[in-house]
Amino acid sequence: MSASRAPRRLTSRSRIALFAAGAAVASLTLSACGEGTASGGPSQTGFVQGKNGFDTVKKSERQPAPDLSGETITGKHLDVADYKGKVVILNVWGSWCGPCIAEAANFVKIANETKGKGVQFVGINTRDAKAQAVSFEEEHKVPYPSLFDASGKLLLRFPKGSLNPQSIPTTIAIDWDGKIAARAVGPLSEDRLRKMVAPLIAEK
Rank of each mutant, 00 (worst) to 15 (best):
S4F: 08
S4H: 14
S4K: 15
A6H: 10
P7N: 06
P7M: 07
R8K: 12
R8L: 08
L10W: 01
T11Y: 08
T11E: 11
S12F: 15
R15M: 14
I16Q: 05
I16W: 15
A20P: 00
A21S: 07
A21D: 00
A21I: 10
G22L: 08
A24P: 01
V25D: 03
L28E: 03
L28R: 02
L30C: 04
S31A: 07
G34T: 12
G34L: 14
G34D: 15
G41D: 01
S43A: 08
G46F: 09
F47S: 12
Q49W: 06
G50S: 13
G50E: 06
K51R: 13
G53M: 05
T56I: 13
T56Y: 11
K59V: 09
E61D: 15
Q63I: 10
A65N: 04
P66E: 05
S69R: 14
G70I: 01
G70C: 03
E71V: 07
T72A: 08
I73T: 08
G75V: 02
K76N: 12
K76L: 04
L78R: 03
L78T: 08
V80G: 01
K86A: 01
K86H: 13
V87T: 06
V88T: 12
I89D: 01
N91P: 05
N91E: 09
V92H: 04
W93L: 02
G94N: 07
G94M: 03
C97T: 02
G98P: 12
P99A: 05
C100D: 04
C100Q: 00
I101T: 07
I101K: 03
A102Q: 14
E103N: 01
A104K: 02
V108P: 03
V108A: 13
K109V: 11
K109H: 11
A111G: 15
A111H: 15
N112H: 09
N112Y: 02
T114C: 04
K115Y: 05
G116M: 06
K117W: 13
G118W: 13
V119L: 10
Q120P: 12
F121Y: 05
F121P: 11
G123I: 01
G123E: 00
G123T: 06
N125I: 00
T126H: 09
T126C: 13
A129E: 14
A131Y: 13
A131M: 13
Q132V: 11
A133F: 13
A133Q: 07
F136E: 04
E137H: 11
E138H: 11
K141S: 08
Y144D: 02
P145M: 03
P145T: 01
S146N: 10
G152C: 02
K153F: 13
L154Q: 10
L156W: 12
L156P: 01
F158W: 04
P159Q: 02
N164P: 06
N164F: 07
Q166S: 03
Q166G: 03
Q166P: 00
Q166F: 10
I168Y: 13
P169T: 00
I172T: 02
A173F: 14
I174A: 06
W176T: 08
W176Q: 11
K179A: 00
A181C: 14
A182E: 10
R183E: 00
R183N: 04
A184Q: 15
A184E: 14
V185F: 15
G186H: 09
S189G: 11
L193G: 03
L193F: 08
V197F: 02
A198C: 10
A198H: 12
A198S: 14
P199N: 13
L200A: 05
L200S: 10
I201W: 05
I201L: 06
